[in-house]
């Protein structure tokens, strides 16, 4: 879409979609891209369906409307395919990155890349499902480089989490779709 890639994240509030959308934007900003990251706010309560967005382009981004025709949809929370219209507006050449071993029937009509992020995060023991998914999204996009993404994530998440766990979760997801 005119040199701009638009990504829509689906999750439940508290699952870290807003943070993942921002980390991706930060890492891409560092590679010289124009970026924007924002959540869609409804009633704020933990567990409510939430959408977040990342825009990236080769030039500064000026538009300030929501994303209606995403190039990429990321489903952090698999149960949302039943209720949230996750494939809505997906660009004709777009795809869905889905947290699961196989695509659900609701996504039969669209291209789906499956990442068993829940399982991978459990295996790692740190529970960073959002970071596994973020790593996979970066691999599928072809940018930013994994190391840049890891640096941006560690910087954003700060001292409250173990940096090595974050880096591992990202690289696990990255390796899955790379």
């Amino acid at each position: 879409m005119d040199g701009m890639t638009e990504i829509r994240w689906h999750a439940r509030a508290g699952q870290g979609a807003k943070t993942a959308a921002q980390i991706l934007a930060l890492a891409l900003l560092r590679t010289g891209k124009g970026v924007q990251a924002f959540p869609e706010y409804g009633p704020e309560r933990r567990g409510a369906p939430l959408r977040a967005y990342t825009r990236v382009a080769d030039r500064p981004i000026r538009r300030h409307d929501s994303v209606t025709d995403p190039d990429v949809v990321v489903v952090l929370e698999p149960s949302l395919v039943h209720e949230a219209g996750v494939a809505e507006g997906l660009a004709p050449d777009g795809y869905v990155v889905f947290n699961g071993d196989e695509a659900p029937p609701e996504l039969d009509e669209v291209v789906v890349r499956c990442v068993p992020a829940q399982r991978l995060a459990s295996k790692l023991g740190s529970g960073f499902v959002n970071m596994v998914m973020l790593g996979a999204v970066a691999a599928e996009l072809g940018e930013p480089p994994l190391a840049d993404l890891q640096d941006a994530a560690v910087e954003t998440l700060g001292r409250k989490v173990a940096a090595d766990d974050v880096r591992r979760a990202l690289s696990e997801g990255y390796a899955w779709l790379n």
Partner: peptide, 12 residues
Amino acid sequence: LDGFTITHSAEP
């Protein structure tokens, strides 16, 4: 500054 559109959107 426009609420949410600017207050809550991350930009460079």
